[in-house]
Amino acid sequence: MPVEAPQGNAIPWPTAPDVPPTAYPPPPKPRRRGLLITAIALAALLLCGGGGVTAFLVLRDGETGEGAAEPVAAVESFLDAVYVDQNAAAAAALVCSDARDQRVLQDKIEEVQRYARTYPSPRYRWDPPKVEQQDATRAVVSTRLTVLTADDRSAAQQLRFTLVQQTGWWVCDVG
């Protein structure tokens, strides 16, 4: 079969009668982007939602464990931990989360221990703590702390404790 000469600017189109129509590659399969987008959105939702629930559970009260049943008991336990046991970890377990600074507590314990090295046999005692103010969530308790030494020296200091009620009573400030 003869090929006709192009007329004008037309380019001849070759014909291929011997090539079957199945020789051309099949069209590409449609991509499943919807499934990928759904999987990514679900993963993000689980991560954000799970993180939000975890943050809520961790921060809702800010306290782990149980505080003291009464403000006076919390102050007594705190004074015992600092002045009798001289144990910063025990004191930290009695302090509200907002004021829980292990370094500050350790510094106070070291101060008490310096007294023990400087003065002969220091002993600490305090008057029975008294509640000055109290409502459902906050209390102010005061006591007079006295240190006595074997050589008859003594020093006294009035202390005021601010406590909060969150799963029990916690010491938040000493002034």
Rank of each mutant, 00 (worst) to 15 (best):
A55P: 01
L148K: 04
A39S: 10
E132F: 05
D152A: 12
P25A: 14
R125H: 07
D85V: 07
E63K: 05
G50M: 12
A116V: 06
A90Y: 05
P30F: 03
A88R: 06
A99R: 06
L105T: 09
E111W: 03
P30E: 13
L59W: 07
P71L: 11
Q7R: 09
V19W: 02
A23M: 10
R123Y: 04
Q86D: 10
P120L: 10
V164H: 01
E66S: 14
S121A: 15
P28Q: 08
P122D: 03
V164L: 03
T137V: 14
E66H: 12
P6F: 02
R31T: 12
R103F: 08
P21V: 13
A39N: 04
Y24M: 11
V147F: 00
D152F: 13
G49H: 06
V53P: 01
R125V: 13
G65D: 09
A136G: 11
Q113F: 03
G67A: 03
A43L: 15
A150T: 03
D135H: 11
P14W: 05
G168H: 07
A89W: 02
P20R: 11
P122Q: 02
A55C: 02
S154H: 07
A16L: 05
A10L: 10
Q113E: 14
R114K: 12
E70G: 01
D18T: 02
G65L: 06
V19Y: 02
T15S: 03
P12F: 13
A88E: 11
T118E: 11
Y115C: 00
P27M: 01
R100S: 14
P21T: 09
N87I: 03
D151G: 01
T146Q: 10
T149Q: 02
S77C: 09
P122F: 01
E4T: 11
A88H: 09
K29Q: 11
F78H: 15
P21I: 08
Q134T: 12
P17S: 01
R32N: 12
A68S: 15
P25G: 12
G51Q: 05
P26F: 04
E111K: 04
A92N: 13
L46D: 08
A43V: 15
V95H: 02
L42E: 00
W170Q: 03
V140C: 00
L148R: 06
Q134M: 13
Y119L: 15
V58H: 03
Y24F: 14
P28N: 09
T15D: 08
P30N: 09
Q157T: 15
L36A: 15
V140S: 14
R153N: 04
A16Y: 08
T162F: 01
D18A: 10
Q102I: 06
R114N: 10
L59T: 11
T149L: 04
I40C: 08
P122E: 01
D85L: 13
G62C: 01
G50R: 09
Q102L: 09
A69Y: 01
V141A: 07
Y83Q: 03
K108A: 12
V112R: 12
P12Q: 05
V72H: 00
R138W: 04
S97Q: 13
C96Q: 02
P25Y: 12
V131C: 04
A89T: 15
C172F: 11
T118K: 08
D152R: 06
A88T: 10
P21K: 10
